[in-house]
Nucleic acid binder design. Structure first.
Lengths: 221, 221
DNA sequence: GTAATAACTTAGACTCATCTAACATAATTT
DNA sequence: AAATTATGTTAGATGAGTCTAAGTTATTAC
């Protein structure tokens, strides 16, 4: 029942690559983990033995229920750790991921419970991603994307999707932080870009790509 | 230059087993790490290749300068982590060791620097053991052992040596905490045991083994 | 619908850290 | 000083996780 770091990394990657269908190819996994396909292949057989992955030759991979639960647990630890590093230790958002990547594998349940407690049992991480609870369930909060909003809407930025370094850096340069109140000034229909204002009437134009990654909540009033 | 967790554990154990002479036997190391002698043996050859250990067939083991530096670095991380867990996260002293045992191996220098900063660059850990600085040096504070004191001495408990669970538990049951003021009432010459009083005239007798592990500072007056 | 290409699998080798069994040296006892 | 015991070493096996090279099956293109 305690998985190796390696196994945990495979499970996490499988989870992250599972889209709607829940299907993942050996190749995708191989590229994500920077591990050669034959290695991935044999690991999939092993995880299949352990009932964590549905594996059949030449068919796409799928996490089993158990595998999914396990993945969630790891992601939970990762996200809790990230918040802790940022909010309680004063790390910057960018540098936190790699450290959490290591801490998430600690075999010390009590440690993560403590973090959870210290943070007040958060349900969403600093990037806005949901945090699974101890049983692996996530409290799905269906936030609206900025790209779905209309001119004149007043919104609060509550989360961002796909938190790679470059994107976080981009948000940084625009002084866009979680909690920022945004007003939509204009939308370009042909490319989905938006001109918005925030932080004392600053005005910026964001591309559709950006707008689809910004999750917002409607502000009453 | 980055060592594996395994190597780090060997280095740490070697350091802890090195007494005055700095010499350690394969057997001691084997027992400490719960790893069979042949395994230890071959690891010593490997660490010798890496210039971390002086190894010659049938001779005692000794850390090289480099090995010692490396060991110190790990111990530094361990101790900083322990303090952090206790003082900033509210863990109990007993449970902290095992978690630190894992965290000390994280490959994230920035993480430990942050902890060091948050803690205010401490030089001694909660058990009184010194913390090596970043270059591996320790600010040697030559504390006196209780076992070296005389009848009538008034002393402050400032540190304990060899902090295994059982010993900490023992101190706990005797309500002996760091900072306690102790007065030596009597010494049995034949076995080195001492009768002492502390905490409003309580009186207890400790064996030599205990007395050698309690580090004290002389109280003026 | 065959040929070319992309994706997947098998086979076999390597490194790391561990083990057991057997052998060698050193230390201790008598 | 010889015999016994304790300690140290060698040899060879194992499992985890990785690799490369060579095959196999799907998919895509013509």
């Amino acid at each position: 029942m305690p998985y190796s770091n390696t196994e945990e990394n495979y499970l996490k990657a499988l989870y992250h690559l599972s889209g709607e269908s829940g299907e993942v190819s050996v190749k995708e996994l191989s590229e994500k983990l920077l591990i050669k396909m034959p290695t991935v292949n044999s690991m999939m057989k092993k995880l299949s033995e352990k009932k964590l992955v549905h594996y059949e030759s030449y068919k796409p991979l799928r996490l089993t229920e158990i595998g999914q639960q396990a993945a969630m647990q790891i992601i939970r630890k990762h996200r809790l750790t990230e918040i802790f590093l940022v909010e309680k230790m004063g790390f910057g958002c960018e540098e936190v991921h790699e450290i959490a990547e290591q801490i998430e594998h600690l075999k010390a349940p009590h440690f993560f419970e403590k973090i959870d407690e210290i943070l007040g049992y958060p349900k969403i991480d600093p990037h806005g991603s949901p945090i699974p609870d101890k049983s692996g369930k996530i409290d799905i909060v269906a936030y609206e994307k900025l790209s779905d909003c209309k001119v004149g809407d007043r919104l609060k930025l509550v989360a961002v999707i796909h938190t790679e370094k470059e994107f976080l850096a981009f948000l940084n340069t625009r002084k866009l932080v979680l909690g920022t109140i945004i007003t939509v000034l204009a939308i370009e229909k042909f490319d989905g870009s938006m001109t918005v204002s925030y932080n004392e009437s600053k005005s910026e134009t964001f591309s559709l790509t950006v707008n689809e990654r910004l999750l917002v909540e409607r502000c009453e009033r």
